[in-house]
Amino acid sequence: MSKEFVCIVCPNSCRLTVSEKDDEITVTGNDCKRGIDHGISEYKNPLRMITSTVAILGGTLPRLPVIGTGEIPKTRMNDCLDEIYGVSVSAPIKRGEIIIQNIKDTGVDIVASRSMNKKER
């Protein structure tokens, strides 16, 4: 079995082919060593940063942006987003405050990516 990826480690954009045979993974098409690690990672368990918003009550804006403390498996993205979409928080919030701990057991926390004050009335 083999898969193709465009390498994003540097602007060269090598077209990587990652093949698996007898439990051995090989990467071809890479111009440099870094492409091998990237290829294997994309093949085995591609990771993505998660960023989104949650509803916030009483804040200066109705949405609070959030970010993961690390990357999550690409395949878990929708699962995690579903949980994020169901959450709402109250102002004030400080950047870095944990909104969801260890989201969907990925080991990643979802934190506020900005501070938000209470809206003055």
């Binding site: 949650v54 509803a55 169901g86 928080v89 969801i100």
Partner: peptide
């Protein structure tokens, strides 16, 4: 609106 109006659940500290 892109988020349902959910019940107020305080952010975990």
């Amino acid at each position: 609106s892109n988020r349902p109006v959910a019940s107020v659940k305080e952010a975990k500290k």
